[in-house]
Structures are given as structure tokens and as C-alpha cells.
Simulated scan of single mutants.
Amino acid sequence: MTPPDAPDSPSGSRWNNLDRPPLNVAGLRRALVREGGLWKSLDVVDATGSTNSDLAGRADSAPEGTVLVAEEQTQGRGRLDRRWSAPARSGLFFSVLLKPGDAVPVERWGWLPLLTGVAVATALSKAAGVDTALKWPNDLLLTVEGEERKAGGILAERVPDGVVVGVGLNVSLRADELPVPTAGSLALAGATTLDRDPLLRAVLRSVEEWYEDWRGAAGDPAGSRLQAAYAAGCSTLGRTVRAELPGGHVLTGEAVAVDGDGRLVIGTADGVQQPVGAGDIVHLRPAG
């Protein structure tokens, strides 16, 4: 792992692109790491394979509230181990370690990636002036040229005594830098700022607020307002979807709700309401 103050990365000098300056590590720590707060430590590395892998590897000894940020990820992973990458300092790539402990039953920990999605969407609305929609279970969507495009994703992985939640968000990517033409970024969505320092501060503060409310409600998604907030921001609901399941099975119907376990409820043509969990889905697409 490259030390936080290392001068170079695989992409060269940290100052090789003045449109994409490095994050201000000292400023982030001053703003976010405080006595009694959730965030206990924050490190920024110039480059790494995957912040989730790095943080999961030391989750045993790291305290809850450990934050690891990378200026560049060379082996970024999405759900089902899908790979993606982006130019150095073009986005926010970070992971956090959460350990709800006995305050929240383990069966409710599956809400953590959905909670993170709500927190990111809330933060971007305030800090960047963009509406962020949530595609169940883990995609962040921004409107670019009148259409919803994936601009980020969330990956949660269980570790002993906790969960590592990773976020990847395209910030300054231009059209010619997109991994696929249907992707998006804050820049392409007309965000009011592309300064990653205030954006990261806003996102982590929002995660802290939602997490503390959820944990204070013993993980109850209704009592913490999380379930209602997720449903309000979820663009999947109300649409006819095609869920591709393991073994080649396909489930088609209207996405009618997100239930108390965080599962997507699909109403089929024969009147059955079938809940499916994130682990049951290979692909979820609009039907037709």
C-alpha cells in the first residue's frame, strides 16, 4: 500500500493534472475525525487495487469507523466481482468499516448498502445540487442528457464482527473517459461542484447520520425512516423489471416494494408477489 504522502502513483505525479488535484488529507481528518464521532481514522492512498480488499484484510484489528480512500483503484470491484476502473483522482473511491455489534441483530445488517445509498444520494443533493436515484440493490444513478445513467456503485462485504462498505462515484469523468457510453458522472450531470473534498465530507457526514439513526433504532428500517427514504429515492420501484436469477431462471414483473429485509418485491402477472434478495440477482434490467 502506498503511504498517504507518497509523491507518485502508477499514473505519475499527484499534481500531474491540475483539474484533478489530490484530496486534502489533513483537512478531511480535521473535519471528520472527532471525539465521540463515528469516524475514528481516515487515510488516503495514492493507488491501491481495492479499498474494500485492503480494509477487509485488517478489519480484525481496525476499529469501527476506519475510512480508507484511494485516489486511484486499479482493481476496483462491484457486485458479483465485476471489475471497473477510472482515471486517478477522477472520482471518490473509498471504503468504511462498520461494526454494529449487539446494537443491531445480524439479520438486519443487510440494510447497510441500502443505507449507504440513501446517505450518498442525500449528500449529493445538498452538496452538488444533483438528484441521485437509487437502482436496487447497489447502483447510484444520475440524469445525463435526459436519461438515467449509472455514476457509481456500492459494495458491502461481511468481515468478522462487521461489514466493509465500499463506494465508487464518478466525479469529473468526461464523456470520452466513460467505461461505457451509458455511464455518467457528476460533471456530465451538471453538478454545482466537482471539488472532491467537500463532496467526501458531505457523504461521510451523511453516512454517519443515517447509520447512527439506524443503529439507535436497533436496525429497524421503518423506525429509523430508512425504508421509507430508500423507497422514495429508488427508481426501480414502479417499473417492470426482468430479474435474472442463478441457474438461468428469470422473474419478470413490476417492482412494487422494498420489504423490511431490504429485498425487492416483484409482482408477477399471475398475482404473486415474490421477494428477491441482492444475493439472488445476477442481473436486474428493465423488461423489454
Rank of each mutant, 00 (worst) to 15 (best):
L98M: 01
G117P: 02
A70M: 12
G153Q: 09
P160V: 09
A86S: 13
G166T: 10
P100G: 15
L114D: 05
W136V: 14
V159P: 00
T132H: 04
G110A: 14
N138C: 14
L112C: 08
K135L: 03
L134I: 04
V67M: 15
G129N: 14
L155C: 08
V130F: 06
E107N: 02
V96N: 10
D161P: 00
A103H: 11
L134H: 01
D139Y: 04
R77N: 08
I154P: 11
S95D: 04
V104N: 12
L115K: 00
R83W: 12
L80G: 00
F94I: 02
A62E: 12
T66K: 01
L142W: 07
P87Y: 01
A121E: 11
A123L: 08
D139H: 02
S85F: 08
G101E: 11
A156C: 15
V165S: 04
E71P: 01
S90V: 01
W111M: 08
R108C: 03
V106P: 02
A119Q: 07
P160L: 07
A156Q: 14
G65E: 10
L142G: 10
D161V: 02
T122E: 13
R108H: 06
V69C: 00
V159N: 03
V120S: 14
V106I: 12
G91F: 04
W109R: 02
A86E: 12
A128S: 08
W111H: 10
R89E: 02
D102M: 04
A62I: 07
Q73F: 01
R82A: 11
A156W: 14
L97M: 09
G78D: 13
G78Y: 11
W84E: 15
R149D: 14
W109V: 03
A121V: 08
T143Y: 01
L114Y: 04
V159H: 03
L68D: 05
G65T: 10
W84F: 15
E107M: 00
R158G: 07
V106R: 12
V130S: 08
R89V: 03
G152P: 00
K150D: 07
T122P: 00
L114H: 09
A103S: 15
V164F: 04
G166V: 11
L134Y: 01
G117R: 02
E145C: 01
R158C: 03
L112D: 07
R82D: 08
F93G: 03
L155H: 05
L68P: 01
A128M: 07
D81C: 00
V159C: 05
D131N: 09
A128T: 07
W111Q: 10
S95G: 03
V159D: 08
L112N: 06
W84N: 15
S125L: 02
W111E: 12
Q73Y: 02
V104Q: 09
A123M: 08
L142T: 10
L134K: 01
G117H: 03
W111R: 07
V96D: 11
G166Y: 09
L92F: 09
P100K: 13
I154W: 12
D131S: 13
P63E: 05
R77W: 09
S125E: 07
G101D: 12
Q75W: 06
V144N: 06
A127H: 04
F94S: 02
K126M: 04
P113A: 13
V104I: 13
E64T: 06
A156K: 12
A133P: 00
G117N: 05
L112A: 10
V67Q: 15
V67G: 15
L142D: 11
A133Y: 00
R82G: 07
Q73N: 05
